[in-house]
Design a binder for these strands. Structure first.
Length: 889
RNA sequence: GGGCGAAUAGCUCAGCUGGUUCAGAGCGCCUGCCUUACACGCAGGAUGUCGGGGGUUCGAAUCCCUCUUCGCCCACCA
């Protein structure tokens, strides 16, 4: 009825058109009957290109979405992108640099317009790329964090938090990226261990002598305004309250006592640079120390320092400071020192702690409900241990610096009065044009908000919040969040906090944290290392299903996925081969079923009744029921690799290698029962395709649609999840048929062992049969004879002696007489030659091991290996000799 | 410095609550096959001190201790 299928599966011809069909038929869109099931996609950067991390993340989500959809839930997989403030601004600034311009040349408005233009041109790419791997997102609800609605949500959240006193502006030390020229949150300053130095400097005391201080950043001494010691430190009691003469600057600075100083570290005296170190800032504030900012935003030495240092890069200045101190005899020593240094998470530049005015969110009050959600079980993590990290972070949470000195993003909704004598500050949901205090001119805060300040609202802002929309009612809170552990703190924890704060409950109940994609050296795949794999390239060469299969089959819960970027074939061929195997199994079944088949269960008269089923039929049905249960269980437990493996084994080994092979005579009409075989084959194939659909959506739908009897518009996406036969499992069929398989396999092994020609028939004799085995062998006699290439299967002992023996697992004995099946003379000669060859090897080896020189001088493991060789050869020779005796040579 | 994870075939990994699918899968390797769905295939085969050492137990890849090696998260000893 349908067009003939090609023997080679061509994913390129199937996948893309099928995706277009699904999309046109609106199969991804939420809004059906059923319990809602909501997956929130971690928004990729709007200008990102698809990489393997996206591939993994979205494959997992898509598998879950498809599974739940088929189980009858109203599935909403909500896609979107974020504006990625720093990253996107950097990209456009680099483009401008090529034209020899900076953003300052354009001015703010013009620059932002340029970024918008860039985003509009490239922005949809990442989402289109997600389509290529089969992502069944609800594209009608796609969001972007700078959309009008989401921007309104950002202002609403800001104003509400401000009004509750949870947002404040403060003058503190923050992490500053001198390259991106903006403040960063603690999470954005990635701590990394580096090998640095600990410099011991001598500060001359005003009263004579000197005090040694230790520092890792000697250049900051230009901004020192004090030295601190521990109040209980007896070495320095007499110095507290006195002064030192700060070298290179000529400043006199006080020595103070503070509990925060660890007397055991270094010399026990710490130089205080309140403008460039958070601890020093705190201590300085307690003791009224001055703050001297000695660096420009670019981290060059500023005009507040002596002239000869001005304009020097911080690391140049470090060298210069050390050189000068050394020449003054004030450098005591330099020790190697390993310590953690913050790096900008966008550009890798070493972060500089910097004193500045920024906006902060007070986090402790927000953290409490987020902790409670985890502790009362409404929020869980997979794998579970990730919950500990979550708790640890929330319990020691620090305030969140949310202002960024960028132009691309949500501008902070605060307006300041221009009039210095008024100084009023207005925080507003809507744009402000006049001062609420004096009616004068206002200007909006120059800074924008951290991108994550919009991302943390996404679970509800993307559904219409702050409006009380129908979507918000139906789809909040969602169910599962699938993401990489890297953004647990950036995004996941904050979403829970925002959800609890603004919606009263966590935005999801399960957080599934998957691993990272790495190369064979376990390095994270990245553009800069050049060790990435382009998922689209894989789709092109192997197909999206092959990509998905490889990802899911290779990924255990909570572990990383290792792929070899230099050898795509070894990584992805398995998936492609499986797709091709499926394709051909489907091709075989479809082409051997010309019309509607009788159903296996039902009330009509034409159903296949149990009595009509052969042992093999009952076996494959029982196996199918079992794998439906196993696969369902695996999906429910997020063990997608188990689901993939179970289905792979069933479809390839059970269905293709065994069942299809042994129903051929029935299908070809050589023996009766063809229509029953067709019904069974179609039924189990159909069920397995459905179970496999979340893993390999394209080929399963392509084949499923071609099963005869389908309506034209039928799609597996709308098929319900298979339900196993609820009757007691047919254990008898499984047991009996397994023994049939064992018998066939054993006969085949004997044939191979004795070099029986493929076309040569042999006899097989089984004695000592259990009733179950006897029953099974009789039921599938034809199958056994055909697949083992037998002339006959007998159950009476024979007095023949030449042939192969084996014991079967039910206790019966198998004998395959070979006297008339092989050329005895030739086989004896072959075995004889082989034994002779082994004897020679054994002699030589015994000589070698008998040589005292060798055993004394060779390494122990080499000797052991040689001994093993000897043992193995001796064993082989024994086996062959026994074989010769059996054959009567 | 604190916390956590991993180590099983040449490679990538399963092995869940100790014991009848316990030593497994895929790839790779060896042997033989173009058997009318599939050579991206079929049949058969080889390969392991389950990281080292100690312990608990009738029994350990599995539980405990310890060591080694890799990896991750957290951290204001300057």
């Amino acid at each position: 009825m349908s067009e003939p299928l090609a023997p080679q599966y061509d994913p390129n011809a199937i996948e893309a058109p099928l995706y277009r069909q699904w999309k046109a038929d609106r199969l991804f869109d939420a809004g059906r009957a059923g319990d809602p099931y909501v997956l929130m996609m971690p928004p990729p950067n709007v200008t990102a290109q698809l990489h393997m991390g996206h591939g993994l993340n979205n494959t997992v989500q898509d598998a879950l979405a498809r599974f739940e959809r088929m189980r009858g839930r109203d599935t909403l997989w909500l896609p979107g992108t974020d504006h990625a403030g720093i990253a996107t601004q950097n990209v456009v600034e680099r483009l401008l640099a090529k034209e020899g311009q900076t953003r300052f040349d354009l001015g703010r408005e013009e620059f932002v317009a340029r970024v918008w233009q860039y985003v509009r041109e490239t922005g949809a790419t990442i989402l289109e790329q997600l389509e290529a791997i089969g992502s069944s997102c609800d594209w009608t609800r796609t969001y972007f964090t700078l959309d009008e609605g989401l921007s309104r949500a950002v202002r609403e959240a800001f104003v509400r938090l401000y009004e509750k006193g949870l947002i404040y502006r403060g003058h503190y030390i923050i992490n500053w990226c001198p390259r991106c020229l903006t403040a960063l949150s603690n999470e954005e300053a990635e701590k990394e261990e580096v090998d640095g130095h600990l410099y011991h400097l001598r500060y001359p005391l005003a009263a004579g002598g000197h005090l040694t201080v230790a520092t890792t950043r000697p250049e900051t001494m230009l901004g020192d305004t004090g030295v601190a010691v521990h109040p209980g430190d007896e070495r320095y009691q007499h110095l507290i309250g006195t002064e030192v003469l700060l070298p290179l600057t000529g400043r006199r600075i006080p020595i103070v006592a503070d509990d925060a100083v660890d007397p055991a570290f270094g010399s026990g005296a710490v130089k205080m640079t309140p403008a460039h170190d958070p601890t020093d800032f705190d201590i300085g504030r307690r003791h009224g120390l001055a703050t001297i900012d000695i660096m420009t935003p670019e981290a060059r030495i500023a005009e507040t320092a002596p002239e000869r240092f001005q304009g020097l890069d911080r690391f140049e200045a470090r060298k210069r400071v050390i050189a000068e101190l050394e020449s003054l005899g004030l450098l005591e020593k330099i020790e190697p020192h390993r310590h953690a240094v913050g790096h900008c998470y966008r550009c890798g530049t070493i972060v500089e702690p910097r004193l500045s005015d920024q906006w902060f969110v007070r986090m402790a009050p927000l953290a409490e409900p987020a902790l409670a959600a985890y502790r009362d079980g409404t929020l869980r993590f997979i794998p579970e241990r990730r919950g500990d990290e979550y708790v640890q972070w929330l319990e020691s949470i620090r305030d969140w610096c949310i202002s960024r000195q960028l132009w691309w993003g949500h501008r902070i909704p605060v307006w300041y009065c221009d009039a210095p004598e008024c100084g009023h500050q207005t925080v507003s949901r809507t744009d402000v044009t006049a001062c609420a205090g004096c009616g004068g001119r206002v200007r909006q805060d120059d800074d924008v908000l951290d991108t994550w300040f919009s991302s943390w609202l996404v679970p509800f802002s993307s559904l219409g919040w702050p409006d009380r929309s129908a979507d918000l009612d139906r789809y909040y809170p969602g169910d599962t969040l699938v993401t990489a552990p890297e953004i647990l703190f950036f995004w996941v924890s904050r979403m829970v906090m925002a959800g609890c704060e603004f919606m009263g409950q966590s935005p999801f109940s399960t957080v599934y944290l998957h691993g990272t994609v790495r190369d064979t050296q376990h390095r994270k795949m990245s553009k800069s290392l050049g060790n990435g794999i382009d998922p689209l390239d894989v789709v092109e060469r192997y197909g999206a299903d092959a990509l998905r299969y490889t990802i899911l089959a290779g990924m255990t819960v909570g572990t990383d996925l290792i792929l070899d970027p230099t050898d795509l074939e070894s990584s992805f061929a398995a998936g492609r081969n499986f797709a091709n195997k499926l394709w051909n199994a489907g091709r075989f079944i479809v082409s051997n079923v010309d019309g509607p088949t009788r159903p296996l269960a039902g009330v009509r008269a034409d159903v296949v009744r149990h009595e009509e089923l052969t042992l093999a039929d009952r076996w494959i049905i029982a196996r199918c029921d079992a794998i439906v249960i196993e696969a369902t269980d695996a999906y429910e437990r997020y063990r997608l690799n188990d689901a993939a493996a179970v289905l792979y084994r069933f479809l390839w080994s059970d269905l293709a290698d065994w069942y299809i092979e042994l129903i051929k005579p029935r299908l070809y009409g050589d023996i009766a029962g063809g229509d029953v075989a067709r019904a069974v084959a179609v039924s189990v194939f159909d069920a397995a395709l459905r179970c496999l659909h979340p893993v390999m959506p394209f080929i399963t739908d392509a084949l499923w649609r071609r099963i005869p009897g389908r309506a034209a518009e039928a799609t597996i996406m709308r098929a319900h999840w298979p339900r196993p036969d609820r009757r007691a499992p047919d254990e008898e069929a499984v047991r009996d048929f397994t023994l049939v398989q064992e018998l066939i396999g054993t006969i085949r092994a004997i044939r191979a062992e004795y070099n029986v020609q493929p076309g040569q028939q042999v006899r097989a004799i089984v004695t000592g049969l259990s009733p179950a085995a006897r029953r099974g062998f009789s039921a599938e006699l034809g199958t056994i004879v055909r697949l083992a290439r037998l002339a006959s299967l007998g159950f009476e002992a024979t007095d023949e002696r030449v042939g192969g023996h084996a014991a079967l697992s039910d206790g019966s004995s198998l004998f395959v007489p070979l006297g008339d099946a092989i050329d005895l003379g030739r086989e004896c000669r072959r075995l004889g030659d082989e034994v002779t060859r082994l004897r020679q090897l054994i002699d030589a080896q015994e000589n070698r091991l008998g040589n005292a020189q060798f055993t004394a001088r060779a390494p122990a493991d080499v000797v052991e290996r040689e001994r093993q060789k000897l043992r193995s050869w001796t064993d082989q020779a024994g086996v062959l000799t026994a074989k010769r005796e059996l054959l009567g040579c």
